[in-house]
Amino acid sequence: MIELKNVHKRFGRKKVLDGISFTANKSEITCLVGVNGVGKTTILNAIMNLTPINKGDITIDGKKMHANLYNKVAFIPDVAIMLPSMTVHEAMDFMKDYYSTWNSKRAKEIVRFFRLNISDTISELSKGNQAKVNLLMGLALDVDYILMDEPFSGIDIFTREQITDVFSSRLVEDRGVLITTHEIMDIEHLIDKVVLLDNGKIYKEFNAEEMRETEGKSVVDVMREVYNG
């Protein structure tokens, strides 16, 4: 379980996270929802110890983030994070060299699934294909948790469909997924838990299915209520 307890973060004078507490469980898809600048990416960066927090605690299965845990948690940011001069094949080799949890068989499967050409240089790929490479680097790791930051941003509709398919495939099966996205409609039916952020705080935390069954509202309906006032 990924657990955030009373997490505070400031950038200069601006308070970005103001006492955030929530959990993301294994075998569940948890979605962080909020308008731009609400702190979604900061939360993911903080979990991966890529941004220091000012106050609070973040633990993964009860432990604070440390080097070995990067073999257990994969982060797929919305920017390309491998060297642009690398080919997809070299990027895969790089991952294999450092991560004991790199699964070569699954990597090949994902390459086929996304129809990537491993001899292509990353810098020459389209934004959509770079996003696929990012997904490949994260999904081919035998990790317990996957963090994804805006996986659909700036992606064409066909690539988006392919990425959506990932969520219902066995590529994320049994793993805990924590995802931030604006394009919630694409994956709404797959989400287990929603954490709605507003002004650096958690506005609402709910189970998507329960919300549908008890109040007859979709995640988008709840978002409209919150953000449209």
């Binding site: 110890n49 890529l50 080097a67 845990l69 990067y70 940011p77 920017v79 390309a80 994070i81 450092y98």
Partner: peptide, 17 residues
């Protein structure tokens, strides 16, 4: 800096920073 942010990958390697 530049087009890609390799700092992400390097800082997330499962080795001591």
């Amino acid at each position: 800096f530049g087009k890609n942010t390799f700092a992400y990958r390097l800082l997330m390697l499962p080795v001591s920073r």
